[in-house]
Nucleic acid binder design. Structure first.
Lengths: 210, 210
DNA sequence: CCTCCCGTACGTACGCTGTACGTCTCGACA
DNA sequence: TGTCGAGACGTACAGCGTACGTACGGGAGG
């Protein structure tokens, strides 16, 4: 057994989250998985919050942001948004941990920097670029949370809404659309909204330069 | 002191969340606020999870969805989205609780029903209406979470990012745009993206009917 | 009026949590 | 060989959700 270190602790935490969900994470569980005393963890990690920060940072730094500065900006922001969505694939149950922690580190700011520079190079003004960036962030994070089931009320996916569950008198549309509401191709849905947004923003840019 | 009942417990929970945040919620704290033994709560609420469901439902049912069926659909979806965003104003620290709980009750499905019927009446197809609905939900929830500070990494608002905090070599855009990144008129930002989305969707509708 | 019964309030207790603190062991170096 | 520091670990404490047992108070039936 290799000596205990920060990397092994973070890896064990990510593994535990993916196996049993974020609620199952406790210092005792992680220590048990590593066959180590609980307090030994505190030699490498100051506290649980910092450990979750490290989890978030590690996952974020694994995202592959391959950006071609020569490509048109529309394709670049599409690629960046899709890269970010990969988190929901590679670490679905850690997604909420990643997006809910404030990271002032390089891993957290790199995606922001890339997105902003793409928008600035596309020709958007300072304030405009930030506004558009925020719109994309809102959409991407909202989509991720639906995909991983954090906001299930308005994302009735895994058979949660069935046609005979709802009163068709009170909720005729939900009843009628139940088949479409219960099925969800996350990638297609994500791309649908993403293209819609890009198209709208491209429209604004074109309209302004004329 | 009136007798203990479910309504008083839920009200105390909401009050506690708004005063000290969702992490401060515990059955013991709520009982103490009500000057009541801990286990007395369980005569009216089966467990903590059900209590949080009740909190979510109560807040959701307070949202005023005033919908004018005669108005154009663009205005109707704008009004519905804005009404939903009111949650962030009336109960900011409860927002995450509301959006993260699956409600199969009427309070949870009413907004869904309204939005879907609006889109259907606007002329969108079944699958299309659901897709568009999901895009709006993603954007609205993502915006709410940024506004209430649940996803702070990509929403550097309250002075979290200051120009001298970032290395301008590594993050030139963040440094240059720091003033715009630290300030955020949530209502204006929300409406900006909302109008962008509505405009894009209206374009799809017009393009299809021609 | 007396009695019984049930809903409500409450105390105790168990297993869980994060982590502060003290101790012990072991390898490196003077 | 003696010393020292770092890391592993045990114990302990306050707080958590809640299962269980108990006590009380008011309405229903005799």
């Amino acid at each position: 057994m290799p000596p205990l270190n920060r990397g092994r602790i973070v890896a064990a935490a990510i593994d535990l989250i993916e196996r049993e969900g974020a609620d199952a994470v406790s210092m005792r569980r992680i220590a048990a998985d590593l066959e180590v005393g609980v307090m030994s963890l505190y030699n490498h990690v100051p506290n649980k919050s910092a450990l979750l920060d490290a989890v978030s940072e590690t996952i974020l730094s694994e995202v592959e942001f391959t950006d071609d500065p020569a490509a048109p900006w529309t394709g670049r922001v599409r690629m960046q948004a899709r890269a970010f969505r990969q988190i929901a694939h590679t670490h679905p149950r850690s997604t909420m941990v990643v997006v809910s922690r404030q990271l002032k580190s390089a891993a957290g700011m790199l995606p922001v920097e890339r997105a902003l520079s793409t928008l600035r190079e596309a020709g958007f003004g300072e304030r405009e670029a930030v506004q558009i960036f925020r719109v994309f962030i809102a959409y991407v994070i909202g989509s991720l949370l639906r995909e991983v089931g954090v906001t299930p009320t308005f994302a009735p996916v895994h058979g949660a809404i069935r046609a005979d569950d709802v009163d068709p008198e009170l909720f005729p549309e939900i009843g009628a659309l139940a088949p479409h509401l219960s099925a969800c191709d996350h990638e297609a849905e994500f791309d649908f909204g993403l293209d819609l947004l890009i198209e709208a923003i491209a429209g604004r840019l074109a309209q302004r330069t004329t």
